[in-house]
Design a binder for these strands. Structure first.
Length: 582
RNA sequence: GCGGUAGUGGUGUAGUGGCAGCACAAAGGCUUCCCAAGCCUUUAACCCGGGUUCGAGUCCCGGCUACCGCACCA
């Protein structure tokens, strides 16, 4: 895949430089540094928080406003039932056993299964009776290790005690006999739990999307790579509920059909439009393709470089067992290709699971265009006959008879032929006006923190201005924490400059004022935090009420009247410095 | 969690047992000033806890954090 033409990744120690800048300029700080810090927890400093806020706004524009999705907010604390249903309580657990000799941490269940398989013994480590997939039990696994004397596969040393490691943080809800609570490992489950209300809110129609931006938590064993793997992180997730029969017909597919994306899949590597990817079955259906295209639109808007963005299809063995197709949006950084978003077809797995756990129906009644007339054969019990004959059992017999769909020959109940007088076989005509459908879920899910790191790295650049090395963050104007800086050329002009500053602030621009030191130093400071434009009040301003507007990327300047300044800047922020009509 | 390496002002660093230096940044001032100029002044640091020692930034032990490798990442 080709790299950006105007910029490559050849800066030495880019990772370190970006992080150094991010720390120094108030984007990212290690949390609780005062007390030595904690791995996997990071603060957003003032510019970082504003940047993040704007990234989330851009996401909201595209995935909530642009899709007429329903925005909701659910608690970060979830109850036990929620994660029993989702499978996180059983599947989000690792059984860890450590080798006493070489101290390697191993997946205990894997060690046992491998050992038994190699000796042709069937392994059953699972706890029965829990909804969802197989749950390896720590007791059974421990037993197997003890009874077979299983040792470390690496060095042959003895193994320690098996212990659970659930990646969810636990807590307690309320005092006294406490109810268990868990910090959510994804925001999605809160949406699924609200499904019946959401469906009613949307007046029982499909399709509809629901979106949530919020914190999620995973107690990572060993978080690394700065903000790439966090224990507390922000997700932006949309769950789009769709009739499974309609997955290949997105109503707005035309809008995105020609969007070109970089694809890495088992069948295809290269660039293609989402339309052709769909037609060639590279992407399973239009809904996935549609959201992949929107995903690309989002990343480009916030400043991820298109040439360093790709969509990678999950291999069958890395896909969650319920998904039919899943794509990761990946950004190329100094940490390699990292996952920024996932667009998955979660099918009806989650809703079915919550149906089972809660006992409530999670289906939508989808009416036919016209009611269908169907003929059906029914067995109608004759209670006048059955009552006296079967007495107390009559009700049971009647229910049995009513349940028969295809009566053939004599009907036998409880080993005895039921007298034909006890029922009548009739053909009835019925009008059916629709089906109950459990919607499938298409889920675009974004890691906001990773995206922000990628944005920073892709924006970081060093160039030379008048022989001086300059560090510049080429941030997208959509997400820059400051849009315009205002400077008096010399301190004597500060009154006029403050006037302009207040004018622009009132006009709703994100604007910063600075009158310290020399003008060059102030420009460079704004370059480092990615401020797209700087307005300077000079001596000419006093004469004719014009100011200079300086472009971050080229350092070129144009003059603009104060009167039209706010409009000129707004236009530049949208169209770019050169394309505005002044 | 294991192994290796490291942790000194805001940032980058020097300092191998005896007064903690430098550069950049920041704040104030001078300079009539459109791209990190200069000058003066000022602020500001040994990751945490034990131990050894008359004395520890320095040596030892433990912890925390970061980077690299291993393992983990439904």
């Amino acid at each position: 895949m080709q790299l950006d033409k105007h910029k490559d990744t050849s800066i030495d120690g880019l990772k370190e430089r970006v992080l150094e800048l991010a720390k120094r300029r108030g984007f990212l700080w290690p949390s609780y540094e005062l007390y030595g810090g904690v791995a996997g927890l990071w603060d957003y400093g003032p510019f970082g928080a504003m940047l993040k806020h704007r990234v989330e706004s851009a996401w909201r524009d595209i995935f909530v406003v642009g899709e007429s999705a329903l925005p909701i907010e659910t608690p970060t604390i979830g109850v036990e039932e929620l994660f029993l249903a989702s499978g996180h309580l059983s599947n989000f657990v690792d059984l860890i056993v450590e080798c006493v000799n070489c101290h390697t941490a191993l997946r205990a269940d894997h060690v046992v299964t491998e050992y038994l398989k190699s000796r042709g013994i069937a392994a059953d480590l699972c706890d029965p009776g829990i909804a969802g997939a197989c749950v390896p039990s720590s007791e059974k696994t421990q037993q197997q290790i003890d009874s077979h004397g299983i040792t470390c596969p690496d060095c042959g040393g003895p193994l320690g005690k098996v212990h659970d490691f659930n990646l969810m943080f636990t807590t307690h809800i309320g005092p006294g006999t406490q109810r268990k609570g868990y910090l959510r490992p994804e925001t999605a489950q809160g949406i699924f739990a609200d499904f019946p209300r959401l469906l009613r809110f949307h007046r029982d129609r499909l399709p509809f999307g629901v979106a949530q931006i919020g914190k999620s938590y995973r107690n990572e064993i060993s978080p690394r790579q700065g903000v790439i793997r966090l224990r507390e992180f922000t997700q932006a997730e949309a769950e789009v509920f769709v009739d499974p029969r309609e997955k290949n017909h997105h109503p707005r597919f035309d809008e995105v059909a020609n969007v070109e994306i970089n694809i890495l899949s088992k069948d295809f590597v290269g660039t293609a439009s989402v339309k052709s990817a769909c037609e060639r079955n590279i992407i399973a259906h239009e809904y996935l393709a549609y959201y992949i295209a929107r995903c690309q639109e989002f990343f480009i808007r916030v400043g991820v470089r298109e040439s360093r963005l790709r969509f990678r299809q999950h291999l069958p063995d890395e896909m969650a067992h319920y998904a039919v197709d899943c794509w990761d949006a990946e950004g190329l950084t100094q940490h390699g290709w990292i996952e920024l978003a996932g667009i998955a077809d979660r099918t009806d797995y989650d809703l079915k699971q919550h149906e089972r756990q809660s006992g409530l129906q999670m289906a939508v009644f989808v009416p036919y265009e016209a009611p269908k007339e169907v003929e059906r054969i029914v067995v109608r019990p004759n209670m006048g006959y059955l009552g006296p004959k079967y007495k107390g059992k009559a009700k049971q017999v009647a229910a049995f008879l009513s349940g028969i769909r295809h009566p053939e020959g004599a009907i036998v109940f409880d080993g005895q032929v039921v007298d034909p007088e006890g029922y009548a076989i009739e053909t009835v005509r019925e009008s059916i006006s629709g089906d109950f459908v459990t919607p499938h879920v298409i889920e675009p899910s974004f890691g906001i923190d990773r995206s922000i790191y990628t944005i920073l790295e892709h924006a970081y650049d060093e160039d030379t201005i008048d022989g001086e090395r300059r560090v510049v963050l080429r941030l997208s104007p959509h997400i820059a924490p400051v849009e315009v800086a205002v400077f008096p050329l010399v301190k004597a002009l500060n009154e006029k400059a403050l006037e302009v500053f207040r004018l622009l602030r009132r006009a709703g621009l994100l604007v910063e004022y600075d009158d310290s030191g020399t003008i060059g130093r102030r420009y460079r400071r704004q370059d480092e935090i990615g401020t797209p434009f700087a307005v300077t009040i000079d001596h000419e301003t006093i004469e004719n009420s014009t100011v200079t507007v300086r472009d971050r990327d080229t350092t070129k300047q144009v003059r603009s009247s104060i009167e039209s300044l706010a409009d000129v800047l707004r236009e530049m922020l949208v169209r770019g410095f050169d394309k505005q009509s002044s």
